[in-house]
Lab assay of single mutants.
Amino acid sequence: MAEQVALSRTQVCGILREELFQGDAFHQSDTHIFIIMGASGDLAKKKIYPTIWWLFRDGLLPENTFIVGYARSRLTVADIRKQSEPFFKATPEEKLKLEDFFARNSYVAGQYDDAASYQRLNSHMNALHLGSQANRLFYLALPPTVYEAVTKNIHESCMSQIGWNRIIVEKPFGRDLQSSDRLSNHISSLFREDQIYRIDHYLGKEMVQNLMVLRFANRIFGPIWNRDNIACVILTFKEPFGTEGRGGYFDEFGIIRDVMQNHLLQMLCLVAMEKPASTNSDDVRDEKVKVLKCISEVQANNVVLGQYVGNPDGEGEATKGYLDDPTVPRGSTTATFAAVVLYVENERWDGVPFILRCGKALNERKAEVRLQFHDVAGDIFHQQCKRNELVIRVQPNEAVYTKMMTKKPGMFFNPEESELDLTYGNRYKNVKLPDAYERLILDVFCGSQMHFVRSDELREAWRIFTPLLHQIELEKPKPIPYIYGSRGPTEADELMKRVGFQYEGTYKWVNP
């Protein structure tokens, strides 16, 4: 592979701008107003304001973009700056750019259920340069409990009458099928589907988006991507930290609602779906819905739930269990780990287990898709061969690698495990991989909904998990304890083995 010439960040961002501006969906010269509902909250200060700053800094926003914060707290732009700027990672050389960014910011205080507050917000936006005809993007960085009041008031008082209007809704989209349907029906009564952007930030990850290209742009994968060759698929999300004093919020939802029903299920769809007619948003989402419709409700015998306990040999936070978090209700049975087996009941995947695993306070930070292939028929190497695996590593250190057998150097035919490896950090030294939120917010500006969740996708996802969630809430089974920093409950490994996964433990990928 030829040595790549190092590029400056300015040059890299210039390439990104060229890609972005050559499309006809990006209205570079139009006025846009980006409204952050819930501007005083954690999500706004840690993710949304920093993301908008990065896009502005790199010249990736339309030229005439204004940012308006809205929340109940009586704040000023200076207050917003004070709480969000520490997350910007701005350099001293960017000081003038930073001043320009905050000059485009404003803030309006108001209630979430008060019509007069929204009329005041609308008047404020109209007073901005060309504000009355601007395109408006409303980001709901809010708890779902206020979605209905907020969307109703936005629709009645704050819509642009000339430009387009788009609304970005953060997960969780309800707690179960019934609450999700209620919320979807409410929002759909106010906005068209092409105006609604239900954001799952995992769909903005580079390697998640790469799944489609790997599958449908490489001839070698087509013939082997089926039940005849693939023994099982494992989708993993692991965090090495616990709730760390923020367990009160987590306890309301648990690990299945927080990660599995959305992030992991979306990745499953991209692995299992048929080739779409095109890369058009609805063509892709149509195929994802077909996959979900082929999955039956989760069966309790295919589920393992766990909850982390303190590690007596650990240090600091590792010595504390979930129930030691003062914000967690006493005696909570909320799971911090889950392993679930699903089956896609169609011709391509009949009988292939899709194993979804996620948890907190585990032994490493990792998100990946792992396809394990069947054993080689007619073994001539005296059971020395391990199964081939194709691994798409989402985070950290984005990579695609194939675990395969090669001859060990020497005189004899002794096979050993090795890999074919594409590590993004080595291959793409001159490429700026956008943060997931950067990519998705740019998608909203461009009107691309491919990486957002459609209402029928959402409904099918909740259909699969709601009976299990209701059973857990009714019966309150005690989750299996696992030690902070471990791989999780051993019962999860036993479940995976029972459905056909072979864990060798003899080879570990190392970032080159």
Rank of each mutant, 00 (worst) to 15 (best):
M37I: 14
G254L: 03
R120G: 14
L235R: 02
G38I: 03
T151D: 01
N218V: 04
R72P: 02
R74W: 15
I234N: 12
Q209H: 05
Q133S: 14
Y249P: 03
D228H: 10
R198Q: 01
P143C: 06
E93W: 08
W54V: 08
S84D: 05
K45L: 06
W54L: 10
R9G: 10
S73Q: 08
T243K: 01
R182I: 12
R198L: 00
I67R: 04
L214G: 02
L96G: 11
C13S: 15
N229L: 04
E193W: 02
A6G: 14
R74P: 15
R81F: 14
W225N: 03
P223S: 09
D251A: 06
L75I: 13
L43R: 02
W54M: 09
V213D: 02
L177R: 10
V108K: 07
K152I: 12
I36T: 03
I255A: 06
D114I: 11
G204R: 04
T51R: 05
I224S: 09
I230Y: 00
P143D: 03
N64A: 07
A78R: 13
N218K: 01
V233R: 01
G23E: 15
N229E: 06
R219C: 08
Y147R: 01
N210S: 09
V208E: 04
F191G: 03
T76Y: 07
G41T: 03
I255H: 04
I196P: 03
N226P: 02
M207Q: 07
E239R: 02
V108L: 08
F87Q: 08
K46S: 03
Q28E: 07
T51S: 10
Y112K: 00
I33T: 10
A141E: 01
R74S: 14
R9W: 15
A134S: 14
L75S: 09
K47Y: 10
G174H: 04
P50N: 06
S189C: 13
K238W: 00
A127Q: 15
I35E: 03
D42P: 03
L61Y: 05
F138H: 05
S184W: 05
I196W: 00
P172K: 05
L61I: 13
W53S: 01
E63D: 13
A217K: 03
E19K: 15
R215C: 03
G174R: 02
S184T: 15
R136A: 10
L16E: 15
K89N: 14
D100S: 14
E239F: 01
D176Q: 04
T151W: 10
F241W: 09
Y197A: 03
R17I: 09
G222Q: 13
G59I: 00
M159F: 15
Q111R: 13
V12W: 14
L211K: 04
F101G: 01
D194K: 11
I36M: 03
E193P: 00
L142Y: 03
Y249V: 02
A115K: 14
I234W: 04
L20Y: 15
E148N: 08
H201S: 01
I15E: 11
R17A: 15
S132M: 14
N153P: 04
G131I: 08
L61N: 03
S106R: 13
L177P: 00
Y202S: 01
M125D: 00
I36E: 01
D194M: 08
E63T: 11
N226V: 05
S73Y: 02
D24S: 12
G222F: 09
L43Q: 03
Q119L: 11
K152D: 11
E170N: 03
L60P: 01
M125I: 14
I187Q: 04
W53E: 00
N126R: 13
S8R: 15
I162W: 14
Y118G: 06
I167F: 13
R182H: 09
F253L: 02
A115Q: 15
P172M: 01
T243I: 07
N153R: 13
A39R: 04
F216D: 04
E93G: 13
R74I: 14
I162T: 14
N165P: 03
K45V: 07
Q119D: 15
G38H: 00
D251Q: 05
R81I: 12
W53L: 00
I220E: 02
S8G: 07
